[in-house]
Every structure is written in structure tokens, then in C-alpha cells.
Design a binder for these strands. Sequence first.
DNA 1: TGTACATCAGTGAACGCGCGTTCACTGATGTAC
DNA 2: TGTACATCAGTGAACGCGCGTTCACTGATGTAC
Lengths: 194, 194
Amino acid sequence: MRYPAAETAAKHDRILKEATRLFRENGFDRVSIPQVMQSVGLTHGSFYNHFASKAGLINDCVSHGAAKSLSGMARAESSMRGKAAYIDKYLSVAHRDNPGSGCLMSALGSEIHRDPEAQSAMTRFIAGFIDRLSSQFPWSTKRHARRDAIRTTASLVGGLILARAVDDEALSLEILREVAAGVKGRMSRDEKVC
Amino acid sequence: MRYPAAETAAKHDRILKEATRLFRENGFDRVSIPQVMQSVGLTHGSFYNHFASKAGLINDCVSHGAAKSLSGMARAESSMRGKAAYIDKYLSVAHRDNPGSGCLMSALGSEIHRDPEAQSAMTRFIAGFIDRLSSQFPWSTKRHARRDAIRTTASLVGGLILARAVDDEALSLEILREVAAGVKGRMSRDEKVC
DNA sequence: TGTACATCAGTGAACGCGCGTTCACTGATGTAC
DNA sequence: TGTACATCAGTGAACGCGCGTTCACTGATGTAC
């Protein structure tokens, strides 16, 4: 039966939100359309009233997640304390243990290149992430801001992925701690020591 | 029919080798047993004469690939030139474009934690990688060798994953270049500049 | 304002497909004597 | 050394399953008059 337009739009958003969470938790291949729709509280058939295909949903999820994440960064980095806190939060146990609500790059990084439908949205996200990091973080010198932003992004993503990959809690915590310290060392405050 | 023992062992190794390559290229979920067996030149049924299950194959592939990779590192790092060359090779276009013959961490990093069967073998690999890096690389000080090895591992893995994730060749090359320069900056030679 | 009708989101059965795995069968190998 | 037989890797049909996707149907919503 037909539903009010506002209700339909709300359902569309809930599908997108649940799918984004599930994809980050389990990867694109291990999340099925029936599973997404069930977690939204609908049957699988109506999925195709909202999205053209699973590939289309994946693309929308990455685009949507990227936009949300980038706007969140702007808020987090509005103060110097916010910047160090951002690094600590990125490399936290909470982020490690909750990929479903975490960073897209870390959650889907090593598999995204196999999904051309999602890759261009992810590219825009990565480029945006680096841009924001280089313009908003207090790097040692403005000349090297972009260079340092790229290195920091690689460290954050690599650090979190390794901390998640590892089966050994002590090693995982060591990785989070050391990478966080290394990244913070790239910020201007510490550069003065050298 | 029955086959000579040597031939059977050789087939076992070819299954392992092909599966390892395919898993690194396409991920565990997008490689099927029939596909592996076909690429070895056999039919799918005989797979279960060699391995107990797909999960068992995955575990053996990660263990086998880890051992091979670690022994390869020892060779590559026997000289100072070898060490800088190792970084450049890790963050090369060739490695980026050929995950099938490349590093396990970068190829499967973000999905390994969903496969408990493979995670402990991967943990041993990551721990071994960090150990070798910290004992064989010329770090600024011996005291910080392990710390620097962890940061370097995160940078290498994050850098390669981002370079692969990105759809934009210029950005991809920039990531490889800047991360490589940053990692080499952690080695003792450059530390003296500071 | 009321009536008639077109619209369209949700349902659940159904489609073809490929998956991991099993199994009866084959026939050369390896072994016991 | 020769013979009889047990072993076991490879084959390909078959299993149940869940996938992405389609479709006829339902019935309240929104619209035209």
C-alpha cells in the first residue's frame, strides 16, 4: 500500500544508516539485502523501491558516510585540544572495537578497490580527509602541512587496521599507543623540541 | 584413482599457492573452492582430499604466506641499501598493483578480524614483522627500535591500503611517495639531520 | 467538500545462480605375501 | 619376482542453502474533478 512521503523518506534514510553500519562491521560481501531490510524492520522486496541495486546502495552508503564523517571532523578540530583528542579517539579501544560506527577507511580500506562502484566515493572521502587534516591541524610548518597530513592519515588507518587485525590484546594496545604518540609528534607543539 | 605421493604433495602445494594468491587479490569471500581448484587444474571435489574445509585452507594460506614473507624480509634487509630498497619496494606501484603476490597485511588487513580462523596466524605474522623490523632496521636509537618499527609497520600498511583504495592516480602516487619519505626519515641516517 | 481513481511502497513467493560440501565411483599406486 | 588386494586422489553429479533480483498483488495515500 502507499505510504506518506515523509515516512518513505525516513525509511530510505534508515536503510542507508543500517546498511552503512552493517557494511562497516561485516564488509560488503557478508551483508545481504534481506539482512539490511530485516534490521530496518521491512521485508527484502521493498528494498528495490528505494535503491536500484546492492551496488547502488554501497555507493550511496560510502558517499553518505563520507559526508557525515567529514562534517564531524570539522567540529572535532575546532580547538587544539580537539585535535589531539581526535587522534586519541581515532586510535582508541572504543573505535577499534566498534567499526560499525567508525571510520570508513579503516573498516573497508583493504577491500574497497575491488568494488569500483564505491571506489570513487571513497577517493573523494580520502582526499577530503587529507585536505581537512592539512588545513586544520597545527603542523610543524605550513609548507609541509599536506605532506604531514598524508603521513598522518596513513598512520591512523594502518594503526587502527593492525590493532583490529591482531588477536593479542597487549600487542593491539601497544600499536594504538605507539602510533598515536608518533602522530602527535608530527604536530607543531612537539616539533619545537627538535 | 591413486597417485604417487610426491605428485599429491605437489598438488597440495599448488592449491595452497594459488589460493594464497587468489585470496590476496580478491579477498576470502570472493574466492570459491571451485575457482581455486580450477586454477590449479583440478575439479572441486578433490579439494577435500587436501584440506578439511575452506576455513582450514584460509588458515593454512595465512600461515604459509606469513612464513614465506618473513623469510623474504630477512634476505632483503641484509644490507643498508636493502633496507631503504625494502621501503621503496613495499610502497611501489608494482606492489600496489599486484596484491596477489604482495603483503598479507595490506591485502587482507581490514577483513582479517572477521575470520577468526585466520586471525591468529595473521597475529603471528604482524608480531614477526614488527620484530624483524625492530631488530634489523637501523633505527635512530636501539631504545626506540620497537616503537619505530610499530609506527613504520602502520605507515607501510596504511600507505599501501590508501594508495590502492584511491581512484586517482596522482593522489595514489603522492601517498606512496610521501609515506615512503616519512618512513625513511625514521631511519638513523636521517635522524642525524635533526 | 466529496468522490473516483491513479500512484506506489510493502509483502512474500518465486526465479536462476553459485556457494561449500558430500558421495558413489574409478583405477593406478603401493603393499602384503 | 609375481600376484592379489587395499588404499586413496580425482571425477562430476547431487545436496541444501542463501544470495540478488523480480513480480503479481494489496491497499492507503495523494490527486483530479
